[in-house]
């Protein structure tokens, strides 16, 4: 009985800060300035389909790149000695101790037309390249900022894989590639799905990265929402509607991915 009451603060917290805002978003999305019911806001979101598609696409690309970089790294880390593991985790966390804005500003100065990289290329007589204000720069910013969120869940899962199980696979004739595909991969599926969620969700709704590295031409859905609340286009009803659509999109993406994850697991079972 006691445990029932000890959960009470959390229920209150969730009611106040999760359920209530969600209801507010819903109400705003389906009302007009006079408070009357309307679906005009939702249908208006359709005008921004290209922004939605671009957001999902760039976030997906960034997520895949993160996964490709993080997976081998997490595996290598998980097989190191305990003190080396601690150092590596520390090094991966270290950039996160610095302010997010600061890190993204740093990338601006690196990628600018007369920034660090272009000046470096200039020494060899090549360039300058257009790097800032491109979709590539936005993806780079996403990968750089969200990579730790992919590495850490993968590492946490992989560190639990018993070395003896890997040795057992080798002992039974599995080459390194086969060990990776039929033992390590299926056992790390939970880490993969957590990592994807933790990178994709913030990436798809980011607005700082796209504004700073993408210029005005690569507006993302996050920027769009931002504009409705703090920008010139002030329209909280449309902003709420876009947020709602974004949430549905994320939900859809996640369920598709979970489906894929489960299939992966089943495939792993069959080797």
């Amino acid at each position: 009985m006691k445990s029932k009451y000890s959960a009470l603060p959390y229920y209150v917290w969730m009611a106040l800060f999760t359920i209530a805002p969600l209801i507010l978003v819903l109400v705003f999305a389906f009302t007009d300035n006079n408070g009357a019911f309307t679906i005009e806001n939702i249908s208006q979101v359709g005008e921004y389909t290209n922004v939605l598609v671009r957001s999902v696409w760039l976030a997906a690309v960034a997520t895949v790149i993160c996964l490709l970089i993080a997976y081998p790294l997490a595996y290598i880390m998980s097989r190191l000695g305990p003190s080396k593991q601690r150092t590596m985790v520390m090094l991966i966390m270290l950039p996160m101790w610095m302010n997010f804005l600061l890190r993204t500003y740093a990338w601006m100065t690196i990628l600018e037309n007369n920034g660090l990289l272009n000046r470096f290329f200039g020494l060899f007589g090549v360039g300058p390249f257009d790097m800032i204000n491109t979709q590539g720069a936005v993806v780079l910013g996403m990968v750089y900022n969200y990579l730790p969120f992919m590495i850490l869940p993968l590492y946490t899962i992989m560190v639990k894989i018993d070395n003896r199980v890997i040795e057992a696979a080798q002992d039974l004739g599995a080459s390194p590639l086969k060990v990776a595909s039929s033992v390590v991969l299926p056992l790390s599926v939970p880490g993969i799905s957590t990592g994807i969620t933790m990178v994709f969700v913030p990436a798809v709704s980011t607005f700082i990265i796209s504004r700073m590295l993408g210029g005005g031409g690569n507006l993302l859905i996050g920027d769009l929402i931002d504009l409705q609340f703090l920008g010139n286009a002030y329209n909280p009803h449309l902003g709420s509607a876009i947020s709602l659509v974004l949430m549905v999109i994320i939900l859809l993406c996640m369920s598709v991915m979970n489906q894929f994850g489960e299939e992966e697991e089943r495939e792993g079972m069959l080797i």
Binding site: D162, A168, A169, Q170, D171, L172, S175, K178, L187, E265
Partner: peptide, 21 residues
């Protein structure tokens, strides 16, 4: 390497594959 040797091992604490039946 181990995977090319004609010996097989029964490991201490078995080391069975937890994801397989």
């Amino acid at each position: 390497p181990p995977y090319k040797r004609q010996v097989n091992t029964v490991f201490q604490r078995y080391a069975l594959f937890p994801h397989l039946n």
